[in-house]
Structures are given as C-alpha cells and as structure tokens.
C-alpha cells in the first residue's frame, strides 16, 4: 500500500484547550503547543497520517485531511 500523503492538519483553535495529548503521542513530533497554549502543526512534512492526534483529541479540534487524489476525494 502506498504511503498516505497529508493534505492538511486542520486544528480548530477556538476548540483546542492546549492539553498536549496530541503533542505527546505524535510518533513523529509534528505538533507543538504555541505561546497561546494551542496546538499547532510545526512539521507537517513529517506527518505519517496515523491520525492518532485526531482520534485522541478530547476537544474534537483536530482533523487530518489526507490527499486522496481527484477521483477519491471526501
């Protein structure tokens, strides 16, 4: 199976409470907490699209959009 390609990590900043769960459990350390105590994707190029941040986010603030090509978009 081809490696999934990231389109964008969408983080709803008004919903994020900066708990740091996504930062702690990201296997490739893509996310960080910024000065405003919100999660931000600082290294999206390292993302492997495992969606662990999206699945564990207690604030339902993260959506990992995967590039699925033109014929397979969601």
């Amino acid at each position: 199976m081809a490696r999934q390609k990231l389109k964008e990590i969408v983080i709803d900043r008004s919903w994020c409470k900066g708990c740091g769960i996504c930062v702690h459990f990201c296997p490739t350390k893509v996310l960080e907490i910024d000065a405003n105590e919100k999660s931000v994707a600082v290294r999206p190029e390292d993302c492997i699209c495992c969606k662990m941040c999206e699945l564990r986010c207690p604030d339902l603030a993260i959506t990992v959009l995967i590039d699925q090509g033109e014929d397979n978009e969601k």
Partner: peptide, 10 residues
C-alpha cells in the same frame, strides 16, 4: 483540558 470524556465522545 485533557479530560478523557472528550476522547470517549470522539
């Protein structure tokens, strides 16, 4: 922040 109930809702 960090409440597990949110993850369970998810």
């Amino acid at each position: 922040p960090g409440c597990g109930h949110g993850t369970i809702l998810n």
